[in-house]
Amino acid sequence: MTSQTPSPAAQRAEFQAFLSNMPVKLGSFVAADLPRSITVGEGEEKEFRKDFSPASLPWVEAYTLAKLPAPAAVAAPENQPFSEGVIRYVGETLLRTVGGTWDTDPEGGTGDGMPFIRPDSPAGEAAGQPISLISLLMTAAQQRRGDVFVTALAGALSEFGEEGAPFRSSTGIDLSAGGEKPTQVEQDHLDAFLSGVEPAIAAWIQEQGGGMEVWQYGREALDRLAADLRERYDSAGDMDDPDEQAYLAGAVRYAGEVIRRAGLGTWRFGAEASAEDPHAGQPYVRFAGTDGAEGFDVVPRQELRRTLDDASALVDAYDRATAARPAV
């Protein structure tokens, strides 16, 4: 953290990036940072609960306390990715139960400069008392009771009274765009894939040279990638060369992530698609339909191949994703 307070415009941009990155960041946190199982009692293995249910909050808080031994550890540079993951998880879990939306306060008065949630209340959508996730995390790390997260949820639910109930469960981010949730087979592939998206992109960018100044997450960079592909390959068949797979794996993740961020799509994996299906064995990005329009998928590897015949294939996919971007 710097001593300089970002401008309201910069804070709003950071907030949009926070929302845009939610599927990858939160998916990676659940897959890579939270354990699959824990040992209890006399060596009994139990599946770690991380399904965004209210019952998962004590599990996540207990594990958080084990990782963060004191409040000062929350902001320690080496722990910041984990702390942000906890904030994302707890916020999304609360929203799925009580409804509401993510928000930010450019003045820093609410949320302590971090994204926070505005839960629903009987007064209306997002009309409840704002909940600062960083404050919850700091309180949990200080009090070390193990029930801070679930108590915050109970407080938001209590607004509806004994016989009342939230009128929706919602969030600004749909982690399963397109309606159906991944099967367990697909989820297993996604768990492995999502945790490696950002490291793979960083390594790929370093290999290409120019850094993030050249390879920004935008339309212009996709034009650059298209030019590189057309110079590197004479035909789509050249992409099947085993020596090209490392380069293409990075390009698939980079192009897919640029396009996904443009439309707030969701990474999926064609783990069970038939062999003739372009999705088969491939990561792809799903975009939910908005305003009555049908949803659609973008398979990055297919778009890379199409680029050799159509130089605008990648930017066309980017433009389509941008047009489908839901309001947040």
Score class of each variant (00 low, 15 high):
9 A>C: 11
12 R>K: 15
17 A>Q: 13
18 F>Y: 13
24 V>N: 13
26 L>M: 13
28 S>M: 11
42 E>W: 15
43 G>T: 09
43 G>K: 10
46 K>Y: 13
47 E>K: 09
55 A>S: 11
59 W>E: 01
61 E>G: 06
63 Y>F: 10
69 P>I: 09
76 A>V: 09
79 N>Q: 15
80 Q>N: 15
82 F>E: 09
82 F>N: 12
101 T>V: 13
102 W>Q: 09
103 D>W: 15
106 P>V: 10
117 I>F: 01
123 A>Y: 09
123 A>H: 11
130 P>R: 01
132 S>C: 04
132 S>F: 03
134 I>M: 05
136 L>E: 03
141 A>G: 02
150 V>K: 00
155 G>D: 05
156 A>Q: 07
160 F>G: 06
164 G>W: 01
170 S>E: 05
170 S>C: 01
173 I>F: 10
174 D>F: 02
182 P>E: 03
187 Q>W: 07
194 L>N: 01
198 E>M: 04
202 A>G: 00
205 I>D: 05
214 V>M: 11
220 E>Y: 06
224 R>A: 12
230 R>H: 06
233 Y>V: 08
244 E>A: 13
248 L>P: 05
270 G>D: 15
280 A>E: 15
286 R>H: 12
288 A>M: 13
288 A>I: 11
289 G>Y: 06
290 T>E: 14
292 G>F: 04
297 D>T: 00
300 P>V: 00
300 P>T: 02
300 P>Y: 07
309 D>A: 03
310 D>R: 04
312 S>H: 03
320 R>T: 03
325 R>W: 11
